[in-house]
Each structure stands twice: as structure tokens, then as C-alpha cells.
């Protein structure tokens, strides 16, 4: 595009074709022209801004490995959080708490989301109900996460009379639901209609078509949605602050999982220890962040890798 015509013969040939006084020089891309300079300048500006936009990502990752990685030890994974001047300690109970609450949230939101998505994509895609449900799901997906906590506080904590892992799970499930539902709907829609028609043509009922044909075919993409939802829920702090609260003890007592008590989570541990003046707790806070970010990123990337392998229609 920016090749300069230099041979005098070519130039004359072209100038002969140009009307009136126009010179070939006006058609060349010249660095002396302000409009060309402006274009180059703006391209450079956009490049610089993009590089700057990625600086925080690398800065966060660098800090996590620099401050969190240097002090991370295996005992962190099975010890309880330390008291202010205590050495050692870990985030074992928070890790278990996060897994348990994300598990509870997944058990609520995944079946709920997939069943509703089956309706949206297959059973009544153009019905008025579907339009309203889709709108509600979109409203939920833009819902501030702290309000999910406020809701769970009103609906579960006040009802059951105390902070609990249940309340935390319910709050997280509100945030997971729209992600699961909307991605599952999209996934079921992406199943080639030939397969659906073939199944119905063979005499299968709608239910058989959904369960035997549509869901298995759409499964990789549905899993992507589920994984993304899990990654989001695992990193959420705001809905857990006043639903699951925090605890310095294990969620499993006497080999029994007790979901009716305040429960620790990685995110709340990081929040609680980020503002304290005690060096050991701050160190632990960075190590916990590293573990949390790695967990979230691994689940996120694993989820995305599922849908990459989905066969194209």
C-alpha cells in the first residue's frame, strides 16, 4: 500500500492519466503530509495505551509470585489462620470453605440454569415467558454482587438466625445462575438443527431428544459456562462478607460437615488480612491471593478449552 512509485516512466504514465493539474506526488504516501503523520501518531498512541492497559495484569501477577510465592509452603494448605503475632499458619479452612460454598452454589445453580436453558432454547424459545426470563437473566447478570449478599442476608441469615455456609452458597448461586443459564441456552441453540430434526423424525419424544441428543452434544459448551461461573463465584468476596462471615476453624467438625456455622473463605481471608499491620498475616494474605488467582485462572482456562474443542457445525 505504501510502496512509492519511483521509476520516471511509471510516474509519467500515471500522470498522463490524471486530470488537469494533479501531480502524482499528491497520490503518494508521504511522511511530510500532516494527515499521514496524524495517522501514524494515532496508531502509536493506541499501541502505547494498549501496552499500558496490560501493565496492571503483569504487575498483579508479578506481585503475586514475588510476595505470595516466596512464602508459600505446603503447610499453608492444611493449617488454620494464625493469630496476630503467631508464626506460620495457613488458609486450609478457607480453602475448604470456598470449595464447600462454591459446591453448594453449583448444586443449586447448575441444574436450575440448565433446565431453564432447555426451556429457553428448545421448548419455548419464542414464547413470551422466554422473553421475560431472558430479560430477568440479563438483569441478574448485571446485578451488583453485594446485593446478592444483601438478599441472602434477608432470605437466609435472618430466617435461620445466624451466618452460615448455606447463606454464602445461596448468595453465590444468584451470581452463578445467569452465567450458567445464558451460556447453556446459547450452547443448546448451537446444536445443528439436523440432529434435532432427525431425532424427532425417528419418533423420539421432546424429552428424549433433549436428554439423548441436545444435552450431550451441547455438553462441552455448557461445561464452559459452568466453569466460568465457578471461577467467578470462587473469587467473589462481597456476597460472603455478611452471609458466611469468617471463621478461624474448620467447616468439618468431628468428621461431619456442618453448614450451619460461619464459614471461612479465601476471598474473605484476603480481605480481612489485607488491612492488618501484622507482617505474618499480610504475608499469608499474599500467599492466599496467589492460590486463589491460580485456582480461578486454571478453572477459567480449563473451561475455555472445552468449548475450543466443540465441533463446528
Amino acid at each position: 500500500m505504501n510502496e512509492v512509485l519511483q521509476g520516471p516512466e511509471t510516474r509519467q504514465d500515471i500522470e498522463a492519466l490524471l486530470p488537469g493539474e494533479t501531480s502524482i506526488l499528491q497520490l503518494q504516501r508521504s511522511l511530510r503530509k500532516p494527515r499521514v503523520l496524524l495517522s501514524i501518531f494515532l496508531s502509536l498512541l493506541v499501541t502505547v495505551l494498549t501496552v499500558f492497559a496490560l501493565v496492571p495484569l503483569f504487575s498483579v501477577i508479578f506481585m503475586l509470585f514475588y510476595r505470595g510465592g516466596s512464602n508459600l509452603s505446603a503447610s499453608n494448605f492444611w493449617s488454620l489462620p494464625p493469630a496476630p503475632f503467631e508464626e506460620g499458619g495457613g488458609f486450609g479452612n478457607a480453602l475448604v470453605g470456598t470449595l464447600v460454598m462454591v459446591g453448594v452454589a453449583g448444586l443449586i445453580s447448575v441444574p436450575f440454569g440448565i433446565l431453564a436453558a432447555v426451556f429457553l432454547a428448545e421448548l419455548g424459545p419464542n414464547s413470551r415467558t422466554a422473553t421475560v426470563v431472558r430479560f430477568c437473566a440479563k438483569v441478574l447478570s448485571g446485578f451488583p454482587s453485594i446485593l446478592a449478599g444483601v438478599f441472602a442476608y434477608g432470605a437466609v441469615v435472618m430466617l435461620m438466625g445466624g451466618f452460615s455456609a448455606w447463606a454464602g452458597g445461596v448468595a453465590l448461586s444468584i451470581l452463578m445462575l445467569p452465567i450458567v443459564m445464558l451460556t447453556a441456552e446459547e450452547a443448546i441453540r448451537m446444536v445443528p438443527s439436523k440432529m434435532r430434526e432427525a431425532s424427532i423424525g425417528m419418533g423420539a419424544t421432546h424429552t428424549q431428544t433433549v436428554i439423548r441428543i441436545l444435552l450431550p452434544t451441547a455438553m462441552p459448551s455448557i461445561l464452559t459456562g459452568v466453569m466460568l461461573a465457578i471461577a467467578r463465584a470462587a473469587g467473589e468476596t462481597a456476597p460472603l462478607l455478611f452471609t458466611a462471615l469468617f471463621s478461624n476453624y474448620w467447616v468439618v467438625t468431628n468428621n461431619q460437615l456442618d453448614l450451619h456455622q460461619p464459614t471461612a473463605s479465601m476471598a474473605v481471608l484476603i480481605y480481612n488480612f489485607s488491612g492488618v499491620p501484622f507482617e505474618n498475616q499480610v504475608q499469608l494474605c499474599w500467599s492466599a491471593s496467589l492460590v486463589l488467582v491460580l485456582m480461578v485462572l486454571v478453572v477459567n482456562l480449563a473451561g475455555k478449552s472445552f468449548s475450543v474443542r466443540t465441533p463446528q457445525r
Partner: peptide, 8 residues
């Protein structure tokens, strides 16, 4: 950038 938890 969007995947990193806000608390981090």
C-alpha cells in the same frame, strides 16, 4: 484482566 478477583 476480568478474571482476577476484585479482592486481589
Amino acid at each position: 484482566l476480568a478474571a482476577i478477583p476484585s479482592v486481589v
